[in-house]
Amino acid sequence: MQIFVKTLTGKTITLEVEPSDTIENVKAKIQDKEGIPPDQQRSIFAGKQLEDGRTLSDYNIQKESTLHLVLR
């Protein structure tokens, strides 16, 4: 499925993911596309910070959902 990741600069990245993917996985995909190390990424969805060990389905993130990426 496709999800979108919006950065603070307003750029939107499209990722191909599975509901079973962990947040860690997703951060690795963002690193592949953007070169941002996962330890600098904070992902926010529906106002909640997403934890690395959880999966997209844990957070009820579905296709075409938009995550927000904040850098630390």
Results as ranks from 00 to 15, higher is better:
Q2T: 14
Q2D: 04
Q2P: 05
F4K: 07
F4N: 03
F4T: 05
V5F: 05
V5G: 01
V5P: 00
K6Y: 07
T7E: 03
T9Q: 11
G10M: 03
G10E: 03
K11I: 09
K11E: 08
T12R: 08
T12P: 03
T12S: 05
I13R: 00
T14D: 03
T14H: 05
T14S: 10
L15Q: 00
E16Q: 11
E16L: 13
V17Q: 00
E18Y: 14
E18A: 12
E18P: 03
E18L: 14
P19R: 06
S20K: 07
S20V: 05
S20R: 08
S20H: 11
S20Y: 10
D21C: 04
T22C: 03
T22I: 04
T22H: 02
I23N: 01
I23M: 05
I23A: 01
E24T: 07
E24S: 12
E24P: 02
E24H: 11
N25W: 10
V26T: 02
V26Y: 05
V26A: 00
K27M: 15
A28P: 00
K29A: 07
K29V: 04
I30E: 01
I30A: 06
I30C: 02
Q31P: 04
D32I: 13
K33A: 12
E34H: 10
G35C: 06
I36T: 08
P37I: 09
P37F: 09
P38V: 15
P38G: 09
D39F: 10
Q40W: 11
Q41L: 15
Q41M: 15
R42S: 13
R42Y: 15
S43C: 15
S43F: 15
F45A: 03
F45N: 03
A46R: 14
G47L: 10
K48T: 12
Q49F: 15
Q49D: 14
L50N: 01
L50R: 00
E51Q: 10
E51C: 10
D52L: 06
D52K: 02
G53S: 12
G53L: 08
R54D: 04
R54H: 11
T55I: 05
L56Y: 03
S57D: 07
S57I: 07
D58I: 03
Y59R: 01
Y59K: 00
N60Q: 08
N60C: 05
N60Y: 06
I61L: 03
Q62D: 07
Q62S: 10
Q62G: 12
K63M: 09
K63T: 11
E64H: 14
E64Y: 15
E64V: 02
S65Y: 08
S65C: 04
S65A: 11
S65L: 04
T66K: 03
T66E: 06
L67M: 06
L67Y: 00
L67G: 01
H68W: 15
H68T: 13
H68M: 13
H68Q: 11
L69P: 00
L69Y: 03
V70C: 08
V70R: 09
L71V: 11
L71P: 10
L71D: 06
L71Y: 11
R72D: 09
R72N: 11
